[in-house]
Each structure stands twice: as C-alpha cells, then as structure tokens.
C-alpha cells in the first residue's frame, strides 16, 4: 500500500508544464467566474455558502444554475438533480480517461477525479500517445491546481465586485469560442468529424429536454457514430 504513493514522487517539470498548458484555457474562465460570483450575490444565501459552491461543486455552469435555482426558491432535491444532470457529461470524460491512467494509485484517482473538468479533460485527452504515468499524474495535478485556484479567485472577485465589467463587452462569449476551438483541435480524423457533427446535431435536437440530458445523449450518439465511422474507414483500408 505505501508502495503506491511513493512510486510516483513529485515531478516538478511535469507539474509546471501542466500549469503552463492550462493557462490559455484558464483565461476564458475568468469572466465566467465573475458571472458566477455575481449570481451568488443575487441568491438568497450567504456569501460564504455562495463561494463554497466553487470548492464543493467546482463546476461553472452547474454552479450558475444552482445559484439561479436558489434565487428562484427551488426545492433542494431539484437543485441536486439539475446539478447532477448538467455535470453528467463528466461521466463520459471519466470513462474516456480510465484506460489512460492504468496503474495509477488510489490517491491520484481520488484527487484527479475531483479536478476532472472540461478544460483539464481537453488537455489530458489531447495526447495521442500517453506519457509515462508519473508525468501524466503530475501534469494532470498541475493543470488541476491552476484551474482550481483560478476559479476560486474568479468567483471571489465576482462575489466582491459584482458586475464591474460592462455587460456590453460580452466577455463570457469567450466560453463558446473556447469550446469551438477545443472542438476543432479534438477532431483529428474523419471519424472525429463524424463524432462532432452527430454530437452537436443531437444535442441541439434535444435542447427541449431538461438541462444536461441533451448533451449526455448527444455525446453518446457522437461517440457511437465516430466508432461506426472508424469501423468503416478501417474496413476500407483493409480492402486491397
């Protein structure tokens, strides 16, 4: 047991590279953190409870919805259900990362799971060839430390200064732009393109469902379509 925590000692270079790789994707989270912090001031809960969502839930869009539901006087169990569904996409991130950290010790799985958010997944998934496990672990934790700290500061600033940035600047628009860029970078071949087209189309088609459902079903549909397309491509390649 003690073997497991000592076999992956701190890798400073990997940790620092994780921070560096995270910075471009942490920038767009700043205006969004301000919005979430401001939403916390609008909800009928204490500032401490509002800020605590950043440590306890640590998921921007779900926090925003939870705070809006608190403000609307929604029952607690409905808030929990909404948060769970909006965050259900992480189940797919978790499944995708499972085989990429094979052999990782329990302590890493516990902490690494806590910080597995969208941008961290984008970075950790981008390696076409997996790095050595020790590097992977500390790079992941470097990314996680950056995104986590950035989020705490961003939401606290929003709580303290509210909507100090004029809304007409539309700074939160960097969020769709960031995901658009991540989408393009994650399309590495034709089956990837198929996965993106199907994932996007199905999610839009299901936008009438309660938040989170359409995206989860869209991801599953996109992944399935990508796998089928990959099968077709490799069949063609196998044919002389």
């Amino acid at each position: 047991m003690e073997e497991s925590s000592s076999s992956y000692p701190f890798d400073r270079a990997a940790f620092l590279q994780g921070i560096r790789d995270g910075i471009p994707l942490a920038i767009p989270a700043f205006p969004f953190g301000l919005v979430v912090g401001f939403a916390a001031t609008q909800a009928p809960i204490s500032a401490l409870a509002g800020w605590s969502t950043s440590q306890i839930i640590f998921a921007g869009s779900a926090q925003l919805v939870a705070l809006e539901l608190f403000a609307a006087g929604t029952a607690g169990w409905l808030i929990v259900a909404a948060v769970f569904m909006i965050n259900s996409r992480h189940l797919m991130y978790s499944a995708a990362m499972k085989s990429r950290i094979e052999g990782a010790p329990l302590w890493f799985r516990v902490i690494g799971g806590y910080v597995l958010m969208d941008q961290l997944f984008a970075i950790q998934d981008a390696w076409t060839e997996d790095p050595p496990l020790r590097f992977r672990i500390w790079h992941w934790l470097g990314c996680g430390a950056l995104f986590w700290s950035q989020w705490q500061v961003g939401v606290l600033l929003g709580l303290s200064f509210g909507d100090a940035i004029p809304e007409s600047w539309e700074l939160t628009f960097v969020i769709p732009l960031m995901f658009g860029g991540l989408m393009i970078l994650s399309i590495r071949n034709r089956p990837g393109l198929v996965a993106a087209v199907v994932g996007g189309t199905v999610t839009i088609a299901l936008r009438g469902l309660p938040a989170g459902w359409g995206l989860l079903i869209g991801i599953i549909a996109g992944v399935t379509a990508g796998a089928i397309a990959e099968g077709r491509v490799s069949d063609k390649e196998a044919t002389p």
Binding site: D118, F121, A122, D125, P176, L182, L193, A195, I204, G222
Partner: peptide, 12 residues
C-alpha cells in the same frame, strides 16, 4: 471520440 462529440455538443 468523447472529446469531439462533447465539445461540439457544448460549443454549437
């Protein structure tokens, strides 16, 4: 294919 499907589903 989780990444392209998910990021398209969020971005679009």
């Amino acid at each position: 294919y989780v990444a392209p499907a998910a990021f398209a589903g969020i971005a679009i």
